[in-house]
Each structure stands twice: as structure tokens, then as C-alpha cells.
Computed example of a mutant assay.
Amino acid sequence: MRGRSAPFADPNQASHEARPIWSAEAGAPVLIARAAAIAGPDTSEAALFAPDLPGAVHLLIDDRKRSHLLLVCGPLALQLLIEGADLLSGPVSLNFITRGIAELAPAIDKLSMLRRILACSSQFRHAQRSWSTQTLRLRNALIALDGHAAGASYREIATVIFGKERVARDWPDPSLKDRVRRSLSRGQAYINGRYRTLIF
């Protein structure tokens, strides 16, 4: 194509985790917009540089010079299909397009989603970093429990919890395997009634 897009979808992840760009022609729900380049300095709210938008995770430019911009915040995701000016050349203004009255309600829903993503992304990124010891233990217990139920080995479970590099480096040390065992025991205790401690 134009050499401006990089591969981004991890084939080892499920589609809802990898967050690929879906084809609008195949029926993917997208919010359509037209970009107009802004000449000279413009400090108005209409000016935006798309890659700097909160929640922007992927930008793909197709062979028709259309931009496919994916915005994500936590469980919320919205794909924009943007025609017109090149989003990477500088600030643009966006005009959102509704193609017919029948598309009005879906477009309003997508605009509402866009507003929520732009509002929450900075707060969500901060929340992601705020793991406590208790929430980390709970997370690891649930990962170990799910992995065990799916038939994963201790090493495979450790890879999900601690990452591939750390497991490759530290697996000969039995303490990492012991941590997986403890996480699995903690998870089994939760399903045997300990979950009540999270409720009360």
C-alpha cells in the first residue's frame, strides 16, 4: 500500500483482545467522518491530530487513502473510517457523516461511544496501574484456575501471569513454580466458598 501502516494484530490473541481493524465493506460497524486539513496554526477545539487522540491504538491507511482509526478505552472500542485529508500530515477537523435517516440512531450511539472513550481513557490508564497486592493475587488466582481448567501446564500459566521473558529466565528456579501452585490453590479456595470474602 503506502508503507505507512504497520502490522498490529497479534495472531496469538483472540480478536477481542488483539483489537484488529475490521473491514467496513464486510459490515463492521464504523463511525464515518471526513477530514479537512487545517492550514497554519489553529488552537481551536476543531483542530485535532488523530494519533494524539486519547485511546488511539491503531491507525491503518488503506490503498484508497482512507484512514481506519481504532479508539479503545477498557472494554469500549470504536472504529472510525475517515476519508479526505491525511491524518498523519498534521491537524485536521472532522465532520461526521450519516448516510441516510435510517443510519441516524446508530450514528448517535457511536458518537456517544466516542465521547465516552475520549472522556475515560486517561482515567482508565491510571486505574490500570493501580494494582494492589490483593487484586494481583486475585487476578493470578483466576488466571491459574482458568489455565488449569483448560489443561495448561504450570509453565504455560506462569507465562500468562509473569510474561514470556521472565519465565524463560527464571523457570529453573522452583520459586516461580511454587507461586503458580499457590495461585492455583487460592483459585480453588475461591470456588470452594472463599469468594464470599470478596462479597462481605
Rank of each mutant, 00 (worst) to 15 (best):
E17C: 10
L184W: 11
I32Q: 04
S175F: 07
S44Y: 04
V57Q: 09
I143M: 01
A189E: 08
A47M: 02
D63N: 11
L184D: 05
G84Q: 11
W131P: 02
R182S: 12
R125I: 11
L142T: 10
S122V: 13
P174M: 10
D63S: 15
G84W: 04
A14R: 15
A77Q: 11
V72I: 15
G193D: 04
R181H: 08
L94P: 00
E45A: 15
I32T: 11
M1Y: 09
S121T: 14
K164H: 07
G163K: 09
G163M: 08
H58T: 14
Y190D: 03
F49W: 11
A150I: 05
D62G: 10
F124D: 14
H58P: 02
L69P: 01
I199G: 06
P20H: 03
P29K: 11
L198Y: 10
I82H: 02
A150M: 10
A24I: 06
D10Y: 03
V57H: 10
V167H: 02
A36G: 05
P41C: 10
Q123C: 06
L69N: 07
V57L: 10
L48S: 06
G100N: 10
S122D: 12
R34G: 00
A119C: 01
D63H: 12
A149R: 12
A127W: 09
F200G: 15
A47I: 03
V92H: 01
A150V: 03
I161A: 05
H126G: 04
I161V: 13
I82T: 02
R66P: 00
A9E: 09
L88M: 13
V92D: 00
R116N: 08
H16P: 02
L87I: 14
A85V: 07
S89Y: 00
G187P: 00
R186C: 12
T43Y: 06
S23V: 02
F8D: 07
K164W: 04
N140K: 04
E83P: 05
G84I: 08
L69Q: 02
I108E: 03
I191L: 13
D62Q: 11
S183D: 07
D86G: 06
A149W: 03
K110I: 02
R115T: 07
S89V: 02
A33R: 00
A18Q: 08
A56D: 09
L71K: 01
L184S: 05
A158T: 04
L136T: 14
V167F: 01
L76K: 08
E17N: 11
N140M: 07
L104Y: 04
A107L: 00
D170V: 10
A24F: 06
D146A: 15
A18H: 08
L145A: 07
R166E: 10
L70P: 01
L31S: 00
R194W: 09
A46I: 05
I21F: 03
A105W: 02
D173T: 05
E25W: 12
D173L: 12
I108P: 00
E25A: 15
P41N: 07
A50L: 15
R182L: 15
C120Q: 15
R64P: 00
D42R: 04
F124P: 00
E45G: 14
I117L: 07
L111H: 07
R34F: 01
H16F: 13
Q13P: 01
A18V: 08
V167P: 01
